Computed example of a mutant assay.
Amino acid sequence: MNVLLTGGAGYIGTHTAVELLQAGHGVVVVDSLVNSHEEALLRVERITGRTVAFHRVDCTDPEAMRAVFAAHDIDAVIHLAGLKAVGESVEQPLRYYRNNLDALLTLCEAMDGAGVRHLVLSSSATVYGDPETVPITEDARLTTTNPYGSTKLFAERILDDLATADPSWRIISLRYFNPIGAHSSGLIGEDPQGVPNNLFPYIAQVAAGRRERLNVFGDDYDTPDGTGVRDYLHVVDLAKGHLAAVGHLADASGHRVYNLGTGQGTSVMEGLRAFERATGSPIPHAVIERRPGDIAVCYADPGAATRDLDWKAELTVDDACRDAWRWQSANPNGFAG
């Protein structure tokens, strides 16, 4: 099967490309390189010993997207491209709505024109907002607290309508929780632009001496140690979830949604201690006031993905910390270095 990966040069995209290639699929990557590096795709080729077809294209460009489908015999698409920083989306909502929704609409139009109607969407647990109960199941109330999350929720609704209007579409949306870690080779990993927005890349940069300390936002939540609890999923397990979804698209009549998570929560302090075990050294940190909008606890019920996609997370937070530290140590300045 030939799979088109939009945003395929990014963190999740490169790990997904590795799993697809190692499973025998062909991979075509579309990426604008706004938040990624072409070097990452060269690393994918080193890991797998296979070639990736790459097009430096913005998914919002209709003509360029039509040309990609004309140049390749595509069987399915995994749509990962998009702007993804929650805080930035609050500051620049119009940019996020324009880019993320335009990209999806343009992609679907290009797919439809080429007769390709098998799609896996990168969605997010942000569609659940502040959950009423945990673990979160797919039928939980959908609400969002920021424009980034809203673009994911609106994308799912667009695909609901598309699948209803044309039953020939086969669509799976993957609502994943908190990807962490890196490939065990140390060749690819998370390379955030500027100050990391997520916990583990920030911890890694503190451990590497790039940042002075980790700020822990609040230790007075109603959790075992007072710090926020999240479902941290190894990025390789997440990539395998995309591989599983592609393999089940033929069975996915209409539009289906699945959580990808471990089903277990890990607190900020537990994550910090896991990274200290990986490095063998203490990591400077300080507890400061809570951030507005942060929630106490959020973790998945991944049972539907296990039942329907035959997928289950296998790697631990400790595994992810060891792999992330291997990547950070070997690439202190990311792909640019």
Rank of each mutant, 00 (worst) to 15 (best):
M1Y: 01
N2M: 12
G7S: 10
G7Y: 14
G8D: 09
Y11M: 06
A23H: 09
G24M: 13
G26P: 07
V29P: 08
D31T: 08
D31V: 07
S32F: 10
S32I: 01
L33Y: 12
V34K: 11
E38W: 01
V44A: 12
V44Y: 01
I47C: 09
T48Q: 01
R50F: 01
V52I: 11
A53N: 04
C59M: 04
T60S: 13
R66L: 06
F69W: 11
A70K: 09
H72K: 05
D75H: 15
A76N: 05
I78F: 03
A81P: 03
A81G: 07
S89R: 04
S89Y: 03
P93I: 01
N99M: 01
N100K: 02
L101R: 06
L107A: 06
E109H: 11
G113A: 05
V116H: 02
H118N: 14
L121G: 09
S124C: 05
T126R: 03
V127Y: 08
V127R: 05
D130L: 07
T133L: 07
I136W: 01
T137R: 14
D139S: 09
A140M: 14
R141D: 15
R141Q: 15
R141M: 15
G149D: 06
R157P: 07
L159I: 03
L159E: 09
L162S: 03
L162H: 00
A163T: 15
T164L: 07
I172L: 14
S173Y: 10
L174W: 06
N178R: 11
P179W: 08
P179I: 02
A182E: 14
S185Y: 14
S185L: 13
I188R: 00
I188L: 01
P192E: 08
P192H: 02
P196L: 02
N197I: 04
L199P: 02
F200R: 05
P201H: 10
P201Y: 11
Y202I: 00
Y202T: 13
V206A: 12
V206S: 08
A207D: 02
A208V: 08
N215R: 06
F217M: 13
G218L: 06
D219K: 02
D220I: 09
Y221L: 13
Y221C: 13
D225I: 08
D225S: 08
V229E: 06
D231R: 03
L233Y: 00
H234W: 00
A244Q: 10
A245T: 10
V246N: 08
V246Y: 08
L249D: 12
G254V: 06
V257E: 02
V257K: 05
Y258I: 03
L260F: 01
T262D: 04
T262R: 05
G263L: 04
Q264V: 14
Q264W: 13
L272G: 02
F275S: 02
R277N: 14
P282S: 04
I283A: 00
V287M: 06
P292M: 11
P292N: 12
G293F: 09
I295Q: 05
V297A: 12
D301K: 07
A304K: 15
A305N: 11
T306N: 07
D308K: 05
L309N: 09
D310G: 12
E314M: 15
L315Y: 13
T316D: 15
C321H: 03
D323Q: 10
W325N: 12
R326P: 04
Q328N: 00
P332Y: 06
P332V: 10
G337C: 07
G337T: 01
